[in-house]
């Protein structure tokens, strides 16, 4: 009850009411809140166009097969391909190979991130190291990682180590380069403010530079995943047998040996499909969120 009667001498500490309302009024006039479309519309907007295109392409392919009657062993129709995918699924070969490849791709990617991130930060922070090592890393990015397969087979034999080695050689340079590009684009004011706020070098790196370089770093991660997945397929096609598990690349190679084009096309579509799904389901939402939070999203609508 006594609270109502106590008048605190706050005028000196906080702004008087009129200055406060003046500020509030000006703020309302000058700033706009971003209004986002509901989630289902964003989802449909992202997923619907590619699905529609896919349906259209399948339909066109089917029409061509029905109308032109091409040789089924050279130009199988979509039904034949779907049929061979179905039988591969029921025999357990397709789920096994998808599982094996995804697991390897994922594990390889995680290892590549764990190696590439500190390496990229070191290179971005230490000029001399970057001048020495930078060109090699860029060179490695140009070198197709398949080129490492023969060497890896000689070093590690037909084991999973060969596959992971090739995947790492593909993904690590992309991640390192993406992170370096991201760090280079960090506005100098931000690091200066970090210094002024009393951040140590490690704090500056972890609290300012790394988050500020996220857009470039994330682009590197995306490319790193693409390179992991590609390198993995290449390694699985070339290096089969031994203790190497049966992946999608092995399935592809098996289809080639059996001259089973339906199976080969079905496997290619599966590999492509996984790439698209990972992009749409994993990377695209994270990237959108990342850019939106910084006001960089191109799709943000303002009032």
């Amino acid at each position: 009850m006594p609270h109502d009667l106590v008048v605190e001498p706050r005028e000196r500490v906080t702004a008087p009411g009129d200055l406060r309302t003046l500020a509030a009024g000006l703020d309302a006039l000058q700033s706009e809140r971003v209004i986002r479309a509901p989630w289902w519309r964003r989802f449909l907007g992202g997923v619907l166009p590619p699905v529609l295109l896919l349906v259209f392409l399948l339909a066109a392919w089917q029409v061509y097969t029905v109308v032109a009657h091409p040789r089924p062993d050279l130009y199988p129709g979509p039904m034949a391909v779907i049929g061979s995918l179905g039988s591969a699924w029921h025999s357990g070969q397709l789920p096994l190979s998808i599982g094996t490849s995804l697991q390897r791709g994922l594990l390889g990617f995680v290892i590549a991130v764990a190696i590439g991130t500190p390496l990229g930060l070191l290179l971005a922070e230490f000029r001399l190291l970057r001048r020495a090592l930078g060109p090699f890393i860029s060179g490695l990015q140009v070198l197709p990682s398949v080129a490492w397969v023969p060497a890896a087979v000689i070093w590690f034999g037909l084991t999973d180590a060969t596959v992971y080695f090739v995947v790492l050689m593909g993904a690590v340079p992309s991640i390192v380069n993406g992170l370096i590009a991201g760090v280079d684009q960090v506005p100098p004011q931000l690091t200066r403010v970090g210094t002024v706020l009393g951040a140590s070098r490690l704090q500056l790196t972890l609290l300012v530079v790394l988050p500020a370089s996220m857009p470039g770093y994330f682009a590197g991660l995306k490319q790193g995943w693409a390179f992991s997945w590609r390198s993995l397929m290449a390694a699985e096609i070339i290096a089969t047998g031994g203790s190497i598990g049966f992946g999608l690349g092995s399935l592809l190679q098996q289809g080639r040996e059996l001259s089973d084009l339906s199976s080969v096309l079905g496997t290619i579509i599966t590999i492509l499909g996984i790439g698209i799904v990972v992009e749409l389901v994993v990377f695209a939402p994270i990237e959108r969120r990342l850019l939106r939070r910084r006001g960089l999203a191109p799709t943000a609508t303002t009032r």
Binding site: V13, T14, A15, L19, R20, A23, A24, L26, D27, Q30, S31, E32, R33, V34, R293, R294, G295, L296
Partner: peptide, 24 residues
């Protein structure tokens, strides 16, 4: 933030603020 009259904008990100609000 209350001292600079911005308590209501505490959860907004910089890109949602005007130039004057950012300086505050």
């Amino acid at each position: 933030l209350d001292l600079v009259n911005l308590a209501d904008a505490a959860d907004r990100r910089p890109h949602e603020l005007s130039g004057g609000m950012r300086q505050r």
